[in-house]
Design a protein around this nucleic acid. Structure first.
Length: 575
RNA sequence: CGGGGAGUGGCGCAGUCUGGUAGCGCACCCGGCUGGGGGCCGGGCGGUCGCAGGUUCAAAUCCUGUCUCCCCGACCA
């Protein structure tokens, strides 16, 4: 029973002034969500229905691959996080109880689930295992934004798999790939599964599920048969015309010219004919020594920090001017030639694999560059792909497309990252203790909902895919309360209640304009209208929200079973 | 953390420069009209001007401090 007259659906004509993203504006305007603090949101009744629909799809598919639903707490002892070395994470909310004991608010649940498994699982006979829950995550994000797309508190479905070995983990991972693919397909979203960064913790595989939309914070690189987060993407660079190499490099005077653009312009060369030197200080995990590394790439390319971190096997930061001055040469004029025997030089693959020719580099002397520098001949290097893919790059001779997208799920092979510190082991057939191999798999119902709004909204409001709409059918009654057309609308409502579809019935005493506007704002896929015209024509008017198309009208005098059948058929034809 | 912007009824805003009765539209309440695209008329309710301190006869307005929110960047298991 959902009559709008006694429902809480606070719609607004105007979007809140501080909203920017489409989903932010529309979800607030449609009465789905309300903000209570930065990155802290309430789901109002209609919005929560959409959230629950997303969650239900996820639950069904994870159950179907053998996931066991449970519930773990958000409030946790800090000790657990100290054992895995994650207590220092800045995003982790930390607090104390009245006795002064240290607690945290969980931002994810590897620690909790692994500590349970460590206690409970003893034998290879107990494995494999998939455990999951829907639970609030708390993260002190540096910058919450875009309504419900990036919040400090949100519900995530996180599942965790436990296996005897890497091969078992691969199996559980593939099961999740299948489940996630089915979840995405069922939501009605446009989505991609992309290769993702595995991080420096030695993960062995990761994918992200991305929904393309303007408000997305990530970028995905797409080509025929290829989809990757730009953080890890690789492609063929657009070619650059290089001058032929002279016998030896020659010095050119470039007073005051410290940028690629200025030097290229001065010498009449494309920016790609220069080598850009990007000095970084690399600090390997653990207690490795810091070291200075010169990263070289084509002047028109940009460093990809994630790929560079992978190539260096180390966290890194840009070197400071005084560090550059002391170790190499004057900032703005540094280059690989004569930079010192011991300096580690990483040359981007786009140069190392590029056509033969000569480049311009800094001369390591003030106001001078070198022309005619040939990698390999004039300096030694280590090759690595460390540049960011950009428009104009190709894969298989076809230009890539780069799209903004929102990450709605990710799956990750953890290996023994958490089982070892938390002592999650089992005894194999030979009685030998072995670490458990783990995977973790997250997905955010809120982001699924918000992404659907982003992808399908138009200037009139939300246009839900069938699977996520808070209500399937929006029945609008026109005319005065108590009028014959209202009575007819009531009868249609009663009939629809006997069917499978979720109906919101606008029985409020408002004008037609307001009702239609609210219906389009709220975005149910199917709108049925009963008014005076219906009495005259004997037809219930039909409008399909997606595209705002008129549908074939339904007969008003049909038997309830017939009407339900007709509505059901209409419903199944919708996107 | 760096840069920018903003806090005035539920929402959107004006008023601040130049101190002097807190205003507008929408929403809301009451009555009436209207009844197929946010309609009309009349009458109402509702605001410690984010907070604290200061200057002044007098502060939404000037000064100091502080809190909160948004955007861009940095960051992001």
């Amino acid at each position: 029973m959902t009559r709008l007259s006694d429902y809480l659906l606070p719609t607004e004509k105007e979007a809140p002034a501080d909203a920017e993203a489409i989903s932010n504006k529309l979800m607030v305007r449609a009465g789905l969500i309300r903000q209570i603090g930065s990155g802290i949101w309430t789901w109002l009744p209609a919005g929560w229905r959409s959230h629950q629909r997303a969650a239900a799809i996820i639950r069904e598919e994870i159950d179907a691959i053998g996931g066991r639903e449970m519930l773990m707490p958000v409030l946790q002892p800090a000790e657990l996080w100290k054992r895995t070395g994650r207590y220092g994470i800045e995003e982790l909310f930390k607090l104390h109880d009245r006795k002064g004991a240290e607690l945290v608010l969980a931002m994810t649940h590897e620690e909790a689930v692994t500590s349970h498994v460590a206690q409970v699982v003893r034998s290879y006979r107990d494995l494999p295992l998939i455990l999951y829950h829907f639970q609030v995550k708390e993260r002190d994000e540096p910058r919450p934004r875009a309504g419900v797309l990036r919040t400090r508190e949100f519900i995530m479905k996180d599942s965790y798999s436990f296996d005897r070995d890497a091969a078992g983990l691969d199996e559980r991972y593939e099961l999740h790939v299948g489940a996630y693919d089915r979840i995405m397909a069922r939501t009605g979203l446009r989505w991609y599964r992309v290769e993702a960064d595995v991080g420096m913790m030695g993960g062995t595989g990761a994918h992200e599920y991305m929904a393309p939309c303007a408000a997305g914070e990530n970028e995905v690189v797409l080509a025929e048969g290829y989809a990757a987060n730009i953080e890890v993407a690789s492609a063929e660079p657009a070619p650059v015309a290089l001058p032929e190499a002279p016998e030896t490099p020659e010095t050119v005077s470039t007073p005051g010219l410290t940028t690629v653009r200025d030097v290229a312009a001065q010498l009449g060369l494309p920016e790609g004919a220069l080598l850009k030197a990007y000095p970084v200080i690399a600090a390997p995990a653990g207690d490795g020594e810091e070291r200075l590394v010169m990263v070289l790439l084509r002047g028109d390319h940009r460093v990809n920090e994630i790929k560079l971190a992978t190539a260096l096997q180390a966290a890194h930061r840009p070197a400071r001017a005084e560090e550059i001055e002391a170790a190499i040469g004057p900032p703005g004029y540094i280059g690989p030639v004569g930079a010192g025997e011991d300096l580690e030089i990483v040359l981007d693959a786009a140069v190392a694999q590029g056509p033969p020719g000569a480049y311009v580099t800094g001369a390591n002397r003030p106001d001078e560059h070198l022309r005619g520098v040939v990698p390999g001949r004039d300096f030694a290097f280590r090759e690595a792909d460390v540049r960011t893919v950009e428009p104009g790059d190709t894969i298989g001779a076809v230009a890539v497309t780069i799209e903004p997208a929102i990450e709605i799920g990710n799956i990750f092979k953890l290996g023994t990252r958490y089982s070892v510190p938390l002592g999650a082991t089992y005894l194999d057939e030979n009685g030998v203790e072995q670490p458990i191999w783990m995977g973790s798999y997250g997905i955010g119902p809120a982001r699924i909902v918000a992404a659907a709004v982003e992808q399908y909204a138009d200037e009139h409001g939300i246009a839900w895919p069938r699977a996520l709409a808070p209500f399937d059918v929006h029945l609008v009654a026109l005319g005065k309360p108590g009028s014959p057309e209202r009575e007819a609308a009531d009868r249609v409502y009663e009939t629809l209640l006997g069917g499978e579809l979720e109906v919101i019935y606008d029985d409020r005493d408002l004008g037609p304009g307001e009702k239609f506007a609210d219906a389009e704002l709220l975005g149910a896929p199917l709108r049925l209208t009963v008014g005076r015209r219906s009495l005259e024509s004997g037809e219930i008017e039909v409008q399909l929200r997606r595209g705002r198309r008129e549908g074939a009208p339904l007969p008003m005098d049909a038997e309830p079973a017939q009407l339900l059948e007709a509505v059901g058929e209409l419903w199944r034809s919708l996107p």
